Computed example of a mutant assay.
Amino acid sequence: MKIIEVAEQQRWDDFVTSHLEANFLQSWDFYEFHKNRGKKIVRRAVVDDKNEIIAAYAGVVETAKRGTYMAIAGGPIIDYNDKKLVREIFADIYRAGKEAGCVFVRIRPQLPLSDRSLRLMQELGLKKAPMYLSVEYAGILDLGKSEEEILAGASQGFRRKLRKAEKNNIEIVANAEKWAIEEFCKLEKKHAERQKYVAFSSSFLTKQFEAFAKNNEVLIYTAKKDGEILAQNFMIFYGAEASYHYGVSSQLGTKYSAAPLLHMAAMREARKRGCRRYNLWGIVGLEEKSHRFYGVSEFKRSFGCEELKYTPAHDMILSPVKYQITKIIETARKRKRHV
């Protein structure tokens, strides 16, 4: 086995998409987005004696006042049953983090939560992170089911909203043109003000959109009535998964129940592209009624989705003393934000 830096997009994406559990979090274009933000990125792989990739991970180095760290979301992509390979790649993650001057490396593996997965993290010397990294609890729809089967599994409330929307003469448009992300950014600011959260910057959303648009991996779905935008979904299509990355709506969009129509249209496109699952992205537990995402989680559950818990983010600690500062700050921040 040998560790290499991967410089060819096709080679990288061919390996990542050959793993059904993978999604855009380890895609080439997601890290092109981070590069365009001025961030240092790492793309490394283990190759065998035939120079074939057998494991890989991509990470982004983030700078913060409390200390520099590397984030590896949805990775590494690896056969976790191969203990030798796992040790090899986690040792390389340690080296890469040290080379980048990191206090710690935060890893949220694309691995379903189980007692076995938690033991593995412990055996590798990782500690559960005080803050999440990307989605750890997701709602998943099986696109092997027909539209009729999915609707049969949805709640009565969801089907009622869908029927209502279908009677409202709502137009659904999907494209990757510049105007779509511009409108999305405008609507997101209004949505954030109404829902009382901090909006992403237009630059952040636009750069992300542009990175995925280059390879036809993104579409903005827009619901309109009488020329007015009601709601929009930012969808990413990569490998086996279609991801509902972001969604925004106006007050009028809520009134006319536009959101279900956007999702049904995106699911049809996902099937055309050969996607196997539709990821509704983050949800929170039924008991977490004070969580700020509880309401949107209930909406996602109304689809009748399966609930998938990933192994939560764990930290590979490279500088124990400095890491304690991060742990104190992030623990306090998590309580304050109710996340």
Rank of each mutant, 00 (worst) to 15 (best):
Lys327Pro: 00
Ala129Ser: 15
Ala332Tyr: 03
Pro312Met: 00
Gly97Val: 04
Gly227Asn: 07
Met70Ala: 11
Asp79Ser: 14
Arg163Lys: 14
Pro109Cys: 09
Ala270Tyr: 06
Leu252Trp: 12
Trp28Arg: 07
Ser18Asn: 08
Ser18Phe: 01
Val60Cys: 06
Lys255Cys: 09
Tyr246Glu: 14
Lys272Ser: 14
Glu136Gln: 15
Lys207Ser: 03
Lys255His: 13
Asp315Ala: 03
His245Gly: 12
Ala180Met: 05
Ser290Pro: 01
Ala165Pro: 10
Thr222Gly: 07
Asp29Cys: 03
Glu288Trp: 12
Glu5Gln: 12
Lys322Asp: 03
Ala154Thr: 10
Arg271Met: 08
Ala165Phe: 08
Leu187Ala: 05
Phe303His: 01
Lys214Met: 11
Gly67Asp: 08
Lys224Glu: 12
Glu188Arg: 02
Lys225Cys: 08
Ser250Arg: 04
Arg108Ile: 08
Phe104Trp: 06
Asp79Ala: 12
Cys305Phe: 00
Phe204Val: 03
Trp281Ala: 09
Ile107Ser: 02
Lys164Asn: 14
His245Asp: 14
Arg160Glu: 04
Tyr244Gln: 09
Phe299Ala: 02
Ile317Ala: 01
Arg108Gln: 15
Ser134Gly: 13
Gly282Pro: 04
Phe299Ser: 02
Ala231His: 08
Glu99Gly: 01
Gly304His: 08
Phe24Val: 10
Ile150Thr: 09
Tyr137Pro: 01
Gln232Val: 09
Glu147Asn: 10
Glu8Trp: 00
Arg159Ser: 05
Arg276Ile: 11
Gly285Asp: 15
Ser243Gln: 11
Arg44Val: 06
Ala213Tyr: 00
Pro109Ile: 11
Leu151Val: 01
Asp115Ile: 08
Ala56Leu: 03
Arg271Leu: 10
Phe90Met: 09
Lys161Cys: 15
Ser114Met: 12
Leu187His: 05
Lys214Asn: 06
Glu21Phe: 04
Thr311Arg: 00
Arg271Thr: 11
Arg271Gln: 12
Leu219Ser: 06
Ser201His: 13
Arg43Gly: 09
Lys128Val: 05
Gly247Glu: 06
Leu219Pro: 03
Ile107Phe: 11
Ala313Trp: 01
Tyr69Ser: 10
Gly282Asp: 05
Ile283Gln: 01
Ser290Phe: 01
Gln195Val: 03
Ser257Ala: 09
Ile54Trp: 02
Val60Thr: 08
Glu21Leu: 05
Glu52Ser: 12
Ile328Gln: 06
Lys334Gly: 08
Phe299His: 01
Asp14Asn: 11
Arg194His: 11
Ser27Gln: 04
Ala100Trp: 01
Met1Leu: 07
Arg116Asp: 13
Ile93Ala: 10
Tyr137Thr: 07
Tyr57Arg: 01
Glu183Tyr: 08
Glu177Thr: 11
Tyr244Thr: 10
Glu177Asn: 14
Ile317Ser: 03
Leu25Lys: 14
Tyr94Val: 02
Asn36Leu: 06
Ala192Cys: 07
Ser134Lys: 13
Val218Gln: 00
Arg87Glu: 15
Asp79Val: 05
Leu261Arg: 06
Glu99Ala: 14
Leu308Glu: 01
Ala45Asp: 13
Ala180Phe: 03
Ile89Gly: 05
His245Ile: 13
Asp79Tyr: 07
Lys2Gly: 10
Gly125His: 14
Tyr57Asp: 04
Asn215Phe: 09
Ile140Leu: 13
Arg119Ala: 15
Val61Tyr: 07
Tyr238Ser: 10
Lys2Trp: 05
Ala259Gly: 00
Gly274Leu: 09
Ser203Val: 05
Leu230His: 11
Gly101Met: 06
Lys98Arg: 15
Thr17Glu: 10
Arg337His: 13
Val248Lys: 07
Lys164Thr: 14
